[in-house]
């Protein structure tokens, strides 16, 4: 994985939307969307409801194919989901297998990738430790809190050793404290692995706090309305970063954008 990234260098985009158009019936959801995401970046997508941000993420994951244009991943046109692209769904309760323990849920990704049975336990232990679930290996998802369930899903996605992590409002259903904890954990994991992140959220502050870049979409049809680069120092800090003038300025700018987009 390191090698592919070195080969990619800084210039070639990891995800590339090229004049992507998508329609459901005669309703155009996304119109001529062009967007390049550079390797190792965290790009946050915001926008009013119905702007197609989740749809864009699903196209980047290969779950939906565009009607026009193309979505390319590491230079290859995407026609189906790929193992090196992991998706974290918002509804962790539905995305986990309730009959499998935390460890066995993570194992599913390893089984899919054909990792030999003997190698799985050690890797599962490592992955669960990474998301802070050591000691909870044998619990079933229904025995765990929402935050812990979402951690299982993140661990399962990390098991794919993804080059790209697609996150669809992953922390939207969690309470504020849990959400901040998971934001920081995600940032440190991503900083460690250099994974490219495509992060959909409706929380403007979250977008600025996490992102290297924040893209605001407009609705009907979905298209890019604003594209901000976030030059806040890393590692970020829940208190200090959020008090920086630059943070407040970007937040204000996005707030105005959303207000206008919805008005």
């Amino acid at each position: 994985m390191m090698q592919t990234q070195l080969q990619q260098g800084g210039s070639a985009p990891v995800i590339s939307f090229d004049r992507v158009t998508l329609a459901f019936g005669d309703r155009t959801v996304i119109n001529e969307l062009s967007l390049d995401v550079a390797g190792g970046q965290i790009v946050c997508i915001i926008g009013p409801s119905g702007c197609g941000k989740t749809t864009a993420l699903r196209m980047a994951g290969g779950l939906i194919r565009p009607n026009g244009g193309s979505v390319r991943l590491l230079g290859e046109t995407l026609t189906a989901p790929r193992r090196d692209v992991a998706i974290v769904f918002q509804d962790y309760g539905k995305a986990l297998l309730p009959w499998r323990t935390a460890a066995a849920n993570v194992s599913l990704a390893l089984e899919a990738a054909g990792v030999p049975r003997s190698e799985r336990p050690a890797r599962i232990r490592l992955l669960l430790a990474k998301v802070g679930l050591t000691g909870h290996e044998d619990k079933y998802p229904t025995e765990m809190s929402g935050g812990m369930q979402q951690r299982i899903q993140i661990a399962r996605c990390l098991a794919q050793e993804p080059a790209v992590l697609l996150m669809d409002e992953p922390f939207g259903a969690l309470d504020a404290m849990t959400r901040q904890g998971l934001q920081d954990e995600m940032l440190s994991i991503v900083a460690e692995t250099g994974t490219t992140v495509f992060f959909v959220t409706h929380d403007l502050e979250e977008a600025v706090y996490l992102g290297d870049r924040v893209i605001g979409l407009l609705a009907n049809p979905g298209r890019i309305g604003i594209d901000l680069s976030v030059d806040l120092p890393r590692p970020r800090n829940q208190l200090e970063t959020r008090e920086m003038p630059e943070f407040l300025r970007l937040r204000r700018q996005l707030f105005d954008f959303i207000e206008k987009a919805e008005g």
Partner: peptide
């Protein structure tokens, strides 16, 4: 959603039936 998870993980059709 579980079928989507199966697709995203690249599970074979047999594995989707047997494991999901």
């Amino acid at each position: 959603r579980l079928y989507e998870v199966g697709r995203a993980l690249g599970l074979s059709r047999a594995a989707v039936i047997g494991k999901i």
